[in-house]
């Protein structure tokens, strides 16, 4: 599982960098999304995987239960929410840019000064 997730993270980072380097700004936003996901997974894996147990305890009296560390999950949830906010803003921004300049090409984005 660890190995598999490591590969997934690597592939996600790779695709994210590839997309970030494209000239199309919509693909740039896709790259940002991938980058966010890769990092959330990294956070998840780096803080230790516990399989088969929930991250909270049910109150069964007298019974000690294994539990997964809930903190990384809370962190990832927060990071997802923040990622959502930034992505949404980036989308609006790119859309506005498109409707003002009628182009999605990053090269035409560079200043002609």
């Amino acid at each position: 599982m660890l190995f598999l997730l490591a590969v997934v993270i690597g592939v996600l980072y790779g695709s994210a960098v590839y997309l970030l380097l494209r000239r199309n700004i919509f693909k740039l936003v896709l790259g940002l999304i991938f980058l966010g996901h890769a990092t959330n997974l990294l956070l998840f894996v780096a803080s230790g995987l516990t399989s088969g147990y929930p991250a909270f305890l049910r109150n069964i009296a007298g019974e000690t239960e294994m539990m997964a560390d809930p903190l990384p999950q809370a962190l990832i949830l927060t990071a997802i929410v923040i990622g959502l906010g930034v992505t949404a803003f980036a989308l609006v921004l790119v859309y506005r840019f498109y409707s003002v300049t009628k182009t999605v090409d990053l090269d035409e984005l560079s200043e002609n000064e």
């Binding site: 906010g85 949404a88 989308l91």
Partner: peptide, 16 residues
């Protein structure tokens, strides 16, 4: 807050 933010973003894209 989340519902408002979501609507704000989506409506501003969906307009026009």
């Amino acid at each position: 807050a989340v519902a408002g933010m979501l609507m704000l973003v989506m409506f501003s894209i969906m307009e026009e």
